[in-house]
């Protein structure tokens, strides 16, 4: 079951696109320094490259922090489950219109191949590039600690890893087109929202809660002492107030005129005995002193075998605007 879900957090998207821009820019300036073309001019390219590399390192430090604080680092734990299926999908299944062999959820954003590639990127490629870059800089700025004798080897490794980055970017951008539609994945990385697989039970629960909240039938819940514990917006509206504090924590008897108290007590007694009440037409005492009529339902709330409260819905009968 798929559902539109907020899958990429704001920082995550900022990190991703900043990193993408920085890497592309580092490539552009880096290969100019390598002598492949002239674009910004060598001096500007060097200044920009050094500036962008510091920006990238700062960004990566924040990203590492984010990964550990949010626990998102677990997304990169490698797994061999479905790895063959995933590879087979890209090699054959995708051409036959087969479904993705693994499901994308908030908790497993990456398929097994992505996990492997991203883990390699984070633990090998990025560190190699950052470390060789820093060593090269320490050749320019030698200190007592780091003295570089032959920066040629360092530069050659740095250049070669840069080639690997280009290859990754090509494959990465292409694979974004393998989502539901070619632009689905990129849109998701921009907005944060994507239609991903969800647990139906979980979805049902969340949905029910929302349904009660948004319902135009009034909802209420009492505890075993007859104290109001929860009401929804529609309930408050029928009682002509928008302040839940007027009712929450108060005895339910304040919702009736003195003449109706016996009927109310009768309902509560019925429910606390274990019965349900439905379709009963009653008259309520609103917050402003006026009266209104509604139909109510009332059910006991169980905690194990014992009854701990009562809840139900009310539907207004006196509002002329309500369709009959």
């Amino acid at each position: 079951m798929k559902r539109n879900t907020y899958i990429y957090q704001a920082f995550e998207r900022f990190w991703h696109w900043s990193q993408a821009a920085l890497i592309l820019f580092l490539m552009l300036t880096g290969f100019e320094m390598h002598g492949n073309y002239q674009l910004l001019g060598f001096e500007a390219a060097v200044l920009w490259h050094n500036l962008a590399s510091i920006a990238l390192i700062v960004l990566i430090i924040f990203a590492i922090f984010w990964h550990f604080v949010t626990g998102e680092w677990r997304q990169y734990i490698p797994t061999t489950r479905f790895i063959k299926a995933q590879a087979a999908y890209y090699l054959t299944g995708i051409f036959k219109g087969a479904p993705h062999p693994t499901h994308k959820t908030v908790y497993t954003k990456f398929n097994p191949l992505q996990r492997l590639i991203y883990l390699g990127l984070k633990t090998v490629i990025f560190p190699a590039q950052i470390i060789t870059g820093l060593i090269y800089l320490s050749f320019l700025y030698p200190s007592d600690i780091i003295q570089v004798e032959s920066h040629g080897t360092i530069a050659i490794i740095h250049t070669f890893v840069a080639f690997l980055f280009i290859a990754f970017v090509i494959a990465h951008i292409y694979l974004t087109t393998t989502g539901e539609t070619p632009l689905t994945s990129i849109k998701a990385m921009i907005t944060g929202w994507e239609s991903v697989d969800v647990d139906p039970e979980q979805f049902q629960k969340e949905h029910s809660v929302q349904a009660v909240k948004d319902s135009s039938a009034g909802y209420y819940r009492l505890n075993i002492d007859g104290i109001i514990e929860d009401v929804n917006d529609a309930w408050l509206k029928m009682y002509r107030t928008d302040q839940a504090e007027h009712y929450l924590g108060k005895p339910v008897s304040i919702t009736r005129c003195p003449t109706e108290q016996a009927q109310l007590q009768n309902i509560i007694n019925q429910v606390f005995k274990g019965n349900s009440v439905s379709g009963l037409k009653v008259t309520r005492l609103c917050f402003d002193g006026s009266k209104g009529e509604h139909v109510l339902t009332a059910n006991p709330i169980f905690d194990g075998d014992s009854i701990v409260g009562m809840e139900g819905f009310i539907i207004d009968l006196s509002n002329p605007n309500q369709p009959s």
Binding site: H34, G35, A155, I156, F160, F163, L164, I166, A167, I170
Partner: peptide, 25 residues
């Protein structure tokens, strides 16, 4: 007798690097 950025390159690794890019393309 030294590596000068912008002038020098490891020709073989450069070729391999370009090869990898072409293969991915």
């Amino acid at each position: 007798d030294f590596y000068l950025i912008g002038r020098d390159r490891h020709a073989m690794l450069d070729r391999i690097g370009i090869g990898i890019i072409l293969l991915s393309l």
